[in-house]
Every structure is written in structure tokens, then in C-alpha cells.
Design a protein around this nucleic acid. Sequence first.
DNA 1: TTGTAGGCGTTATCAC
DNA 2: GTGATAACGCCTACAA
Lengths: 347, 347
Amino acid sequence: MVVVRQIDVARVAGVSQTTVSMVLNERTGGSARISEDTRERVLSAIKKTGYVANPIAQSLAGHRTGMFGVFAFEPMFTAEAGGFYTEFLGGIEAAGEAARKDLLLFTSTVLDEPDNHIYRRNENRLRLTDGAILLGNGEPKMELARLHEDGFPFVYIGRREIPNGEISYVSADYAAATADLVERLVAVGHERLCYVGTGADASASIDRRRAFVDTLRDAGLPVDRPVPAGHGDYAAVRQAVEAGATALLVEPPVGIDELTAVIERAGYRVPADVSVALLGDVHGHSVRPDDWSGYRLPRWEMGMQAVKLLVRLMEDPGGPARRVVVPCLPHDGCTVAPAPRPGRDRR
Amino acid sequence: MVVVRQIDVARVAGVSQTTVSMVLNERTGGSARISEDTRERVLSAIKKTGYVANPIAQSLAGHRTGMFGVFAFEPMFTAEAGGFYTEFLGGIEAAGEAARKDLLLFTSTVLDEPDNHIYRRNENRLRLTDGAILLGNGEPKMELARLHEDGFPFVYIGRREIPNGEISYVSADYAAATADLVERLVAVGHERLCYVGTGADASASIDRRRAFVDTLRDAGLPVDRPVPAGHGDYAAVRQAVEAGATALLVEPPVGIDELTAVIERAGYRVPADVSVALLGDVHGHSVRPDDWSGYRLPRWEMGMQAVKLLVRLMEDPGGPARRVVVPCLPHDGCTVAPAPRPGRDRR
DNA sequence: TTGTAGGCGTTATCAC
DNA sequence: GTGATAACGCCTACAA
């Protein structure tokens, strides 16, 4: 690999290396002005030598790399991920292209110690990039805090909070989407709605539960306690259905397929007897997504907005954290139907 | 963004910057040996100052970046691409992780001039990486030639040739897969097989056609001329079916859905009257892939092998080009059936 | 065992 | 207009 440097070009053109740099960067501002003659000599020397700039040296001297990092805390293209990330990446790619940034995907997130991924030893490979988009299900508070402390510009896809400070993120409007879903169910006659969740206290869960409760209350309907499920245990869900619930709002990552199987084994049909709606996306491939009613994460849009946010963040270094909330996408599958008529035996 | 450099650490520890570098790189070999005492002082100074290495400076001095480039000549995560790239990326990601390389995806491939993507002006951003995987449908001969001339290590996913030299690639074994497919069709009674292609002379097409012809000849069956199709024109295919063909081997990117529609509109059923098999993958989302019989590209495996090849390439700079041929994956969908019994009216 | 000095290839600031 | 010269932050002979 023959390396031609600016100095080689300079020798051929009979000028100094500085001049070559100036010609290449068209530095006309300030005190620098290149005569047309010199300019031509340099350009022809470039052509003759086949000079190509070394982007690493440019980065070191110029303080930017032209790359955005994408950090996922787990592999993105596995069968288990089931395409969860590709839509985010679509938005990131499109916006990255507009911002003229290439994307650095960090792969080596799993081989090492399970914690402390971004920083390992005394390295932080994110720093190779001008800024980064982070995504994933984790809550890597310590790393985010350190990144924030270091003043490194980044945006999380998904709402995240850290102890001492505020970070920028793009989040989905779970609350509005859940409220809307409840209203739609109520509109088609459902009166006993049941929230099936993991019991997690992630902010997304809190938003969803609150919207569920508030909307039901506003509609003057009874509000049952959320029903726990998951880990193969759907007994409580079954009880709720037998007690008269006609619509289940299921929070990922509860296994909606298994849950449905349990319901049908108990003698109820989905959606004729019981409607099932999914509150957001499923991470993984266990589910044929199009079949399920509920709402979806606007993943492409979130990726897109994250990059835009990052760009704005970098235009105003030292500025405050910024947040964007993106509406979810209502989705009509085949698991929601009008409520069964009261009095009819549902078995 | 406060930057702590090795020299800052050195000052705190009361040593030279070289010593800090040595401690960080555990350079015990050769003439360098650090006393336990100094080492501790340096380490505690690192902790105290919060030093984090600057990967760009490391790259410039160390001549490697820890990144592999992935260059696709088009956006990878669009709806049009329809997930075509993600499986390749899965293999690339897995192997990249093993090789401890992050992946740099080049986005800005479309905005600029339609030709000359890798090199634009006097830049080649691929050089930011230690080596690159290229993929895509194009035949960017000039760029590949220049890249090869520059001695930059890269592997193409898909067979590619250049005028003066040989490049490394990973390709799918279309020939074997096509031969196998023909044999399977013959085994279930088909005697009039028809090759439907674009007429392109890409090497993959040539391989497929030759395997088709050879295998039929070996079986003692008649070999009809390949039938052209595409661009909405399937008249020739219809004629072939009416002339007695019972199995169509369709070469992407022929629109297999449209083609089938034409056949069925002509009064034939797929697969009862006519079997349809796909010779490879469809780039795009026009097709529900699982429904189609034929064979598939081993995309994950190809991505994986490409990275492994690249690693080997880099271990032996100046070595010859290397090639890997990966078997295709036979796929049973619902478009192939035994031949209709002769004499029976197929309409 | 540690430090000095030169280099990696570029950009940017001044004198001339 | 052009060219020294000094960063940029790190690595690595070689010298001490």
C-alpha cells in the first residue's frame, strides 16, 4: 500500500506542504490566497501522484471524524433481535446521510465483561465518533452518567434518566397511544379492560399504566388492578378473563402468543370472546407482528429524529438536554373485535 | 468536553508521558519494564484524572483503527431493500465481533455524483478502516480496480472481476444449487423445464444457465432455449407453458409474483400444473420469500465468510486474492409439485 | 527502569 | 501569495 502524502505532492509541485493543504481545503479566507498558477501545479501534482487524503490524520488535526456512533448494548442483526433494530437503523441511516455522517456500529459489546460496555479499561471507542445514538433495552445508568459528565454528545432512543443531570432522548408517546387504544376499545363496547404487564417500573410501563387508569376513569368504567404475567405464568390473566374481562392490553415483553394460547385453551376465542391488544413492539421474532392489534413504535421516525437531535445538540455544545416525543402508530391486526354481547355465554 | 491526555496523567504521576503509554500498553517486551511502584502511581493518576485514550491519535500512530468498513453502494435499511442486507450484516457482525472490529457503514453513497462513490474528490473514506467488505448489485469495476491498485484490503460479497488483477470475494454456489434443483424437479417427473431469465450476462446468470443446460443434458432431457422475461413482459413465458413446460426456473430479479399471476391468468395452477422455482434471492420486498420454492443465498454465512477472508487477507498483505464459495440453501416452499400426469389436460 | 526525541499526516497560525 | 512552525495525542526506537 503505497502512501502518498501531502509532502510528496508538494515536492512534485515545487511548493510547500502547507500550500498543498490550502489548495485542497480551498482556504481562501483570512490571509491565504493561492495564485491560479500554483493551484494548477498542485492539482496536477495531485493527479500525477494519485494522492488521497488520510482521514485519520484529518480527524486528529481537524477534531471531527465525520462519523456518528450507533451503540446498541447487544448485537443488532441476530435472529433473536428479529429485525427489531433495522427500522431504527433505517431512520438513522437516512438522517445520517443527510447530515453527511457515516455510521460506526459497535460490535464488541458482548464478549467482554457484561457491564461497562462503552468504557472498557481506559478506552471509549465512542470517542472515535462525533456523537452517538444509543439504543437498547438496558438501563446503563452509570455509563450514561459518565458519558454525560465527559460532555460527549449523544442521544438515547428511548427515555432514560440519570442521577445527576439530564440526557437527550427520543421517546415514543406511550401514554397517548395507550389512551387512544383504551378509547377505541371502549367505543366498541368493552367495559372490563385488563392491563397485563410485567410489573416493571420502567418509565414506559408507568406511562402506559397511568394512561390506562386515567382513560378508564374518565370513561366512568371500573379500573381493575393490573394483572402480572410472564415467565410462563398466565394464571392471573386466565382468572381475569373468567371474571369477565373482555379486553386485554398486553405490555411487551409479555409473551403474547403464549398468553393467547392459554386463553384459548381455557375455552375463549380471540377476538370473538376476548380482544387482545399489544402496547408497543415486540423485541424478538416470536410473534408475527402484523397479526396483532394495538400500536407500534414509530421506529424509523425515532431513529431519524434521534440523528436530527444529535445534530442540533452538536450545533449548540454546552446547551441543555433535548427531548423529542414521537407519536406511536395505531395498528389494526386481527386480535381486537367489538365486545361480546353481555349475557351471552362466552364459553 | 475536558480532555485529559497522557501528558496530564504523567504530570500527576510525576513520570514522563512515555511511561504512561508503556503502562497502558503493558509493554513488557524488549527493553521496557516498569517497576511496580511506578505502575501503581500511573494507574492511580489515571483513575484520578479520569484519563481515556483518544482512539484517533492511537490510530494515527498505530496504523490501525479497529474498524472494518461495510460499503453497499446504496442505502441498506430502506423499505425497498426489504431486509436484503440485514442477513449479510448478521454474519458480518458476528465475525466482526470475533475479530474485535467495529463496523463502519458508509451512508453517503447516493447524494453525490452517481459514479465514483468510494473515491470522491481526493478522499477515500474507506481508508478510515483497516479493511472493507463491499456488497451490492453493481459492477463498480473502476473503483474496485483502483482500490485493488492502492493495495487496500477488501472482500466483495458476490463474484466480481476486474481488468488487471484479481480481487477477493465470497460467492454463492449457484451452479451446484441450480443443478440440484433441476435434479429434484426431474426426480418428481418434470421433463420440460424452462429457464426464465433476464438475459443478463452477469457471472451468476452464466453459472446458472450452464448448470441448467448441463444437468438436463446429463438427464437426457430436451434443453429449450432460455426464455426472457421481466419489465412486465411475460408473453414468452406463457408461450413456453402452453408449449408444454411444466417447471419454470426463474432467475432473480425477474418478478416472480407477476410471472405467476400471468400463468394463472392463462388458466394454469401453480404448482399443480406448473411448478415455479426461484434461483436465488429476491432483492426487495415484493415477494413473501417463504412461499417460494427454489434455493436461497446463504447470506448470513456469506457475510461471516467475507469477514474471515478479510482477516486472513490482512494477515498476509501482498498475498494473492482469495475466494470462498458457499453452498446455497435449498428451500421448499409451496410452488413446486410433481409433474402433472402426461395426457391429462392441464387446462 | 525510565526519559528524550522523532514521527504518524493533517490543519491552522503567523511571519515574510 | 507562500512557507516555516507549531499543534493534534499517541507510539516507539534509542539513549541514559
